Simulated scan of single mutants.
Amino acid sequence: MSSMSSKLTVAVISSLLASCAAVPNAGPSYHAIESQAAVKLSTKEKKVGIDYVLIDINKSILGYFQSETISSLKDGFGGGRGGAPSIPLGIGDAVEVSIFEAQAGGLFIPSDAGSRPGNFITLPPQQIDSNGNISVPYAGRIRAAGRAKEQVEREIEDLLANRAIEPQVVITVTERKSSQVAVLGDVNDPQKVEISSGGERVLDVVSTAGGISAPGIETYITLQRKGRTATISYNKLSNTPAENIYVAPGDTIFVNRERRTFLAFGASGANGRFDFEESSLSMGEALAKSGGLLDSRAEPAQVALYRTVDAKTLHKLNIDTTAFQSEEIPVIFRANLRDPSAFFAVQKFAMQDKDIIYISNHDSVELIKFLDIVNSVSSTASGVSSDVVATRDAVREIAD
């Protein structure tokens, strides 16, 4: 290429860049957006500023990422083993109090009772009031809420001992409004489920509410109890008996369907959001689902997967996380698909909901882009066009 042609090419490119405002655009350029801003909040070199960990995918890490990470109800609340939790009386419960005496002629059973069936009376049903009390004649107001039924029975007996003949008291709970669990979300019959002293587990109350209305693999169960929350997938809950813990009064269970998706960007066959659908995915399957790598653009050695990982998992890999304040740490996993054995690894590496796959362009692609621009703006310069085309084609041959 002659010196005159080179100078002309540079001049043409400079002219084009200087007059870029005349080139058709769909909207304002980023130069205009930045220059006309009244106030700018930015960082040095316009970096986002989020630190992350870079991990190359290899056989040594596969054991930690071969299955989806799912939280636990058992670890969060316990209750998977042992008997059902005791259920005390509570405000709003309806109870009946029956009082037995050893013989007629006592406080409640008159001497002329005749042929009445048994020496007892049953008081009219009553609700435990907002103060947590019930009322029993000659015993007064008695604290019931928060206490076991047997405790309240013994107290009434003690209070009546000096008036009734060897009194015995039996309390029957006719309605347990304080011992209910709310089941909401993607169930066929959302409702409040009354739990009994025999104990109900999570799947029991979900079943009472009509069962789930979405595919099990996309359904998650969230348990809320006294300000604490834990979530687990329905499949793991149903397949792991220890996770099917007892519910407690006042619990709220949310059943929700979450479309499990991942994003694919860069030099993949298709960019966008993709559903897991009704199955689990490996990284290899996700790459295939998004169209694979583009032969003309992709750098197989730079296939990245973006995910947040809990610090405990990274500690198992002997990764120092002291530079991070959060327990959820951004991680980029990198796969080198130029290595034949990497295809075995990505087929074992499990995808998780909301993962992002990014496939980088090969370095030669950026050079070809530049040469294409030079070719387009220098076509009026004699000899330059053919030289650029020849150079571009040579680079493509090297890249291929």
Rank of each mutant, 00 (worst) to 15 (best):
G80Q: 01
I357R: 04
V202W: 02
I332C: 00
P215I: 11
V169S: 04
I221Q: 06
F274H: 08
K7P: 04
S6W: 12
I217T: 07
D129I: 01
I165A: 11
A214N: 07
T172L: 14
Q325K: 15
V377W: 12
I33D: 03
R273P: 09
A214T: 13
G227V: 00
N256T: 15
V346M: 04
A286P: 04
D320E: 03
A102F: 06
E96G: 12
D75I: 02
T308F: 13
V95W: 00
P24N: 07
L293R: 04
T229K: 10
D129C: 07
A345T: 05
Q302P: 09
V365D: 02
P215K: 10
S72P: 03
S379E: 12
I57A: 00
I329F: 09
E166Y: 11
S29G: 12
P300K: 08
G90H: 02
N188C: 02
Y138M: 10
V202D: 06
T231V: 08
L8H: 08
L8D: 09
T122Q: 03
E166C: 08
G383C: 11
S15Y: 14
D400T: 15
N375Y: 14
M4C: 10
E218K: 08
V193W: 04
D353K: 15
G76P: 05
N119E: 11
E34H: 11
S196G: 10
L17H: 07
T322Y: 09
V97P: 09
I50H: 07
D112F: 04
V10Q: 13
N271V: 13
A209F: 06
N188I: 05
S279C: 00
S115R: 13
V97H: 03
G106K: 04
S238F: 05
L89K: 01
V247Q: 02
E175T: 14
G198A: 06
F265E: 05
G76K: 14
T9Q: 14
P330Y: 01
Q191H: 13
R257F: 08
A390E: 10
Y52I: 04
A144G: 05
G92E: 07
G78C: 09
T391D: 00
D93L: 06
G146T: 00
S72V: 06
V39L: 12
I91C: 09
R392M: 10
P137R: 03
A94Q: 15
V95G: 02
Y138I: 00
V247M: 09
A270I: 14
S382P: 13
N318D: 15
A113S: 14
S72Y: 03
T219S: 09
L371I: 11
D112E: 13
A145S: 15
E166N: 15
I319K: 12
I359R: 01
I221G: 01
E34P: 01
V202K: 03
F265H: 07
P340S: 11
S386K: 11
D355W: 07
L367Y: 10
S238I: 12
A267C: 01
G79Y: 02
K192T: 10
G266M: 06
G199M: 04
R163T: 12
N162H: 13
V389F: 12
G291Q: 05
P137M: 07
F370H: 15
L223M: 02
G211V: 11
A139Q: 05
D400Q: 14
L337C: 07
L263C: 01
S196C: 01
A270W: 07
M351E: 06
L107A: 14
